[in-house]
Design a binder for these strands. Structure first.
Lengths: 340, 340
DNA sequence: CTCATTGTCGAAAACGTTTCGGCACGCAGA
DNA sequence: TCTGCGTGCCGAAACGTTTTCGACAATGAG
């Protein structure tokens, strides 16, 4: 019923002191090969599972890490990023005996409060920091609290923690080169909310890629990563004389919304305007026309971020990581420039 | 740096024994009003935060609950249920000093393994059990492990744990009555995978509602809760002579996929066929035609489930809860029956 | 044969709570 | 005055690890 077999039982069975059991099971030096084997055998036979609670108390570790996601319910409703990200995180955490504590804050203040509580309670040994904004309050807060942090897509300069980044530059350059090869020269961008670092990164990558390809960057309309945002962006971009021949949206959902609205407005996709997304979510495969996009791997980002966080907690040296895009997926929403 | 102020400090400051501090701060009897106030004051002044770790060890509680979601990555990719559900769970957990441990299992065996680990480690005081299937392995496993459980949309008979259920019957009856009032008599259903209890519940509710309204239930096609599943269902249902005049899909994503495909096939929605979903996700508002659906509240389900779980852990009496649907949302995808 | 050295192991002290048994003390009833 | 009994409080023992430090044996060098 209650947790029966403790380290004491193992020690008794192996005929050694509990300290030896501890050393043996944690791969610490100071115990001979012979006794080590004996101890491990005893532990196995008894089905010994060390008590995380006692371990936590004694070793001052929680064996858990935290993720706080700020969720203004509408925006993130069906954001596929976190599900995959968490999957990746979990795969690494599980194998190292760690667990993930997930918190959700509705507004800014609530989110900060969650971090504070997590730290005050010492419930986790480290946290992920994602969806980072310009002048993000959480950064000074986390600097003050002494807690290992791994950032996700943080800005490249001036970020005080280690970070995992999607390599937007490489990915978006591939998208742009593809468009330019098709003859496009007026290429617009529907960005994410500009307060988000990762939205700015994508926009900057778009701009730089075009400059590098010697194309004048087209208009930028700020979206919000939603389907509806794509609608609005189409309304804004597809009027007047200076129409873009291609549009790159900051994510797939926006691109799908953009296409739907463009078609409603009487444009042909890709005949009049090519549309591309960024993410590679399932949906892009089902809409008509199917969506050209760049597939990324939130799962990989999660796994690497978890590895970095755990290494950092263990005191191992860590360094930033760039995750390359997975694959350029060419489908039906893009085609040769109309050149009108 | 390290957790400084402990119960000992508080006791010293208040001039009492640590046992009194513990009693006072936990609202336990055996301490007079006067000293209680003094102790609370001392704790406040010192900014005392009890160590969850010590508390866990001593009181044999983890102060955390677990959610294991099985994620065959494609299917759940953009399932909005969990995000909202977790939001609701969190809102209750937070205020009671509990945290949520989230685990993700890729396959069946991995999922079971997560539950086992969670239990063996005693990392949580209880778990949620959702997406329940017919003959679900997890049920016997959880019965064997002694751990409080709250089910989500479990079957009504023969489920060994307490449960929170969306009241599909009430909700779907509203949808059906609305269709029947519009003159529909051939009403089909695109279900979820039949291995899921909640998919069967929806189908059963659909069937019973129609019987009650004295309409012969139409065809049933098994979908999979995805957009693509809606596509396939349309391919299957919209051929031959005996066409349905209305289709109720088991969730919104399926309905949106169904509509898109129906329109591709040359049908008019709702002219030739009315389509309705179930969930009330954002997307239904953006597609054309906009989607008639029933709004549910995963958030509410999460909150109630968390309350039930915590009460159960505290040893308080608990009883099943039915959550009513939130609102029938009539939009453009449904209309009078074509009666052809 | 002695002494320093190394490697192995054990006893005991943390870690910071909760909980349990008991000791004063004041008060009622005899 | 004595007995009995709640009340409020205290000291100390859990809870199950990790970790430190010292004891002890075996080993090699002088």
């Amino acid at each position: 019923m209650t947790k029966r077999v403790t380290i004491v039982d193992v020690a008794a069975r192996a005929g050694v002191a509990i300290s030896s059991v501890s050393s043996a099971l944690n791969d610490r030096p100071g115990v001979s090969a012979g006794t080590r084997i004996r101890i491990i055998a005893a532990a196995d036979e008894l089905g010994f599972v060390p008590s995380i609670r006692a371990r936590s108390l004694s070793s001052k570790r929680a064996f858990a890490v935290g993720l706080v996601v700020q969720r203004d319910p509408d925006v993130l409703e069906s954001d596929p990023f976190f599900a995959s990200f968490i999957g990746g995180v979990e795969s690494v955490l599980g194998s190292r005996g760690y667990a993930l504590v997930l918190q959700m804050g509705a507004g800014r203040e609530e989110t900060l409060e969650r971090y504070r509580r997590l730290a005050a309670d010492r419930r986790v040994d480290g946290v992920f920091l994602s969806e980072i904004e310009i002048d993000d309050d959480r950064i000074p807060l986390l600097e003050q609290i002494q807690l290992p942090v791994v950032g996700i897509n943080a800005e490249r300069d001036d970020f005080p923690f280690v970070c995992v980044r999607q390599d937007h530059v490489a990915g978006i350059e591939r998208l742009m080169r593809y468009l330019v090869d098709l003859g496009h020269t007026r290429i617009a961008h529907v960005s994410g909310p500009s307060r988000f670092i990762h939205a700015r990164q994508r926009e900057a990558a778009w701009r730089e890629a075009l400059v590098r390809l010697q194309i004048e960057p087209g208009r930028v309309v700020e979206g919000d990563f939603t389907y509806e945002g794509g609608h609005r962006a189409a309304d804004e971009l597809l009027v007047g004389g200076d129409l873009p021949t291609a549009v790159m949206c900051a994510n797939d959902l926006t691109a799908v919304g953009f296409m739907a609205r463009a078609i409603d407005l009487g444009f042909s996709v890709p005949g009049d305007v090519s549309v591309m997304g960024y993410d590679g979510i399932q949906l892009g495969e089902y809409v008509r026309p199917t969506l050209t996009t760049l597939k990324t791997s939130p799962r990989l980002i999660g796994a690497e971020a978890a590895r970095l966080l755990l290494d950092q907690i263990d005191g191992d040296p860590v360094a930033d990581i760039d995750i390359p895009p997975v694959q350029l997926i060419v489908r039906d929403s893009t085609g040769p420039s109309a050149r009108r």
